[in-house]
């Protein structure tokens, strides 16, 4: 990485402060734009395209996406620097898929480490391992999505098979970064006890992995599809009851991992 990493540019679409569900302590999430997957349940559909888009929000047109330097992002992020330091919190990169902009993502993480704060990424690990490698030196926690163990079903619901994800998961597990597996639990896709059991078993087989988070499906992204002029493919699907989620949690716990509902 060049020494001028603070001037590295990238494309983001949101910065969310006081996030407490995606890593330790109080955090700020920077959402990078662009993703290689097209998950049907995606609650941030405006994150998928790399190009800058227009979305209708509450009746008004809004531009989604802006190009920024690492320095500009860090100025925003470090406004909460004392909250991070008091809670072992920090910066989380999300998206989209932050691995789609590996140099920018790595530069952001490096800048965060220079500021002495914790770093995490939320990522589906669908890109070549070289992209991940660029980030690892500056990364404390990798929150990795594993959505399904069946490559065909994975491809049907996300647009890509899971082969590379599972390979990458093992390689990250072998690094000294903390790896936490997260499963978006989606009715009609992966919410049977057997499907959850398979994912949990795989996660438990990864060296060093201790935690698994089940993230229940919600519909908060639905209006955004309308705002983008897109069809919401999961229309009509109801979120699961708390008691059903708890029954899946029991299944997951059998893997021996520390499991929880939500991040």
């Amino acid at each position: 990485m060049n020494d001028n990493y603070m001037q590295q540019t990238g494309r983001i679409f949101d910065i969310q402060r006081y996030s407490i569900h995606d890593g330790t302590g109080i955090r700020t999430i920077v959402f990078l734009k662009g993703c290689v997957l097209r998950c049907r349940w995606c609650c941030n559909p405006e994150s998928q395209e790399y190009k800058i888009q227009e979305m209708t929000v509450a009746g008004k047109k809004k531009i989604i996406g802006r190009d920024v330097t690492v320095a500009e992002v860090m100025e925003e992020v470090m406004k909460d620097g004392d909250y991070y330091r008091n809670s072992n919190g920090g910066l989380t990169l999300s998206g989209g898929e932050c691995l789609c902009q590996p140099d920018f993502a790595a530069a952001l993480l490096r800048a965060a480490k220079e500021n002495g704060i914790n770093t995490a990424i939320e990522s589906a690990a669908t890109l070549p391992f070289e992209n991940i490698q660029k980030l690892l030196p500056y990364l404390d926690t990798y929150l990795m999505d594993i959505k399904h163990m069946d490559p065909r079903k994975h491809e049907e619901f996300t647009g890509k098979p899971n082969t590379r994800i599972l390979e990458n998961a093992r390689k990250v597990a072998e690094s000294d970064v903390e790896l936490i597996i997260r499963v978006p639990v989606i009715p009609t896709f992966n919410n049977t006890p057997e499907e959850i059991r398979q994912i949990a078993t795989f996660a438990a087989s990864l060296p060093g992995v201790e935690q698994l988070h089940l993230l229940p499906y919600h519909r908060l992204g639905q209006d955004k599809y309308t705002g983008l002029g897109r069809e919401y493919l999961l229309d009509g699907i109801e979120p699961m009851s708390q008691s059903y989620m708890e029954s899946l949690l029991e299944v997951a716990k059998k893997s021996g991992l520390r499991c929880q509902i939500g991040g």
Binding site: G25, D82, Y83, N86
Partner: peptide, 22 residues
């Protein structure tokens, strides 16, 4: 939801203390 669980409480306390530090 922001105050749920021990983590919610601890983060909330940090929030409070940091506002007071400022």
């Amino acid at each position: 939801s922001a105050l749920s669980g021990p983590k919610g409480i601890n983060d909330f306390i940090t929030y409070l203390r940091t506002y007071f530090n400022r």
